[in-house]
Design a protein around this nucleic acid. Structure first.
Lengths: 155, 155
DNA sequence: CTCCTTCATCTTACTAGTCAAGTGATAGTT
DNA sequence: AACTATCACTTGACTAGTAAGATGAAGGAG
């Protein structure tokens, strides 16, 4: 790192890795804003819809299993499910120790209503700037990266 | 989307775009956890360090300019700077309408202390699973993607 | 010399998440 | 039978963000 004292300006020796990191972080944040803005018309947030989709795929599922699927802490999933339950999208059925989560009909209906629009929204943003080949490459590279951090977290 | 009513199981017709989206989201969340865990020893969070770096690069800078640099709302930057000011990392000097942000010596020192470690941490994670060529490709693709969402947000 | 607009910042009320400590019932041990 | 460990989940105190509305001073218009 080169520090030019007089001008108070840092000429940072950024690595390719850190530049990638920054782009990914900014993209995630910005695309999340867009996604939430888009989903507002359906009266749901991106995080909530993500959880709903996971439940629909794996139901009936326990809270701790669900926490793993959406990569969120157990406390986090507890709060989220409280909100979704209040909205009437899901049901928690207590089987003595564990709570089994299932969608209500309102939850199923919401997925039916939103799924294709959201899928189309996400797909369009990627299709607009990357060719099919580029998308395959990007998916492959991001998978490598994500699996690596996943392994690090487990240890 | 194919729905098998009996088994309550959705066989989702996921697009490549939506799969990429998911990988990126999961990676960002997980790597953020790792980053915060790593930075705990320096008694700072990833978000705070990000803001500190931006200030060091562009200081003196106004709050609204800073908000653009870190892609955060004006309300968000206001809160964040309150925290950083309380910790003694930054200074807000009011010039009647605008507040000019600069680092304190404590803030400069914190950057000096953390910068190389954080850079090394981020670089390592990427280097571990991607070759130099792959990194170049990933950077190029993510830049395209991020610029596309950035344009969408501005309009 | 007030009135009004503009603009940067702050505040309020919210979602979403973390970590760590707390709860409460079941099950196993002595 | 009482003691304790475990397990799934919840809660408390916090960071970090949003959107929308409030604040307050400067500058221009009448």
């Amino acid at each position: 790192m080169i520090v030019t004292k007089g001008s108070e300006h840092y000429l940072k020796k950024n690595t390719l890795g850190s530049l990638i990191w920054l782009r990914i972080t900014r993209f995630t944040h910005q695309s999340n804003l867009l996604s939430n803005h888009f989903l507002k018309q359906f009266d749901i947030t991106a995080a909530q819809f993500d959880v709903l989709i996971q439940i629909s795929t794996y139901q009936p599922i326990t809270q701790s299993q669900l926490a793993v699927k959406v990569t969120v802490s157990e406390g986090g999933i507890s709060r989220m499910l409280t909100r979704l339950e209040q909205e009437g999208y899901i049901q928690r059925k207590q089987d003595w120790k564990t709570k089994w989560i299932t969608l209500t009909s309102k939850g199923e209906a919401k997925i039916q209503e939103v799924f294709e629009h959201q899928l189309n929204f996400q797909t369009t943003i990627v299709n607009e700037c990357l060719t099919k080949e580029e998308q395959k490459t990007l998916y492959m590279l991001m998978s490598k990266l994500q699996k690596n951090t996943e392994n690090k977290i487990e240890s």
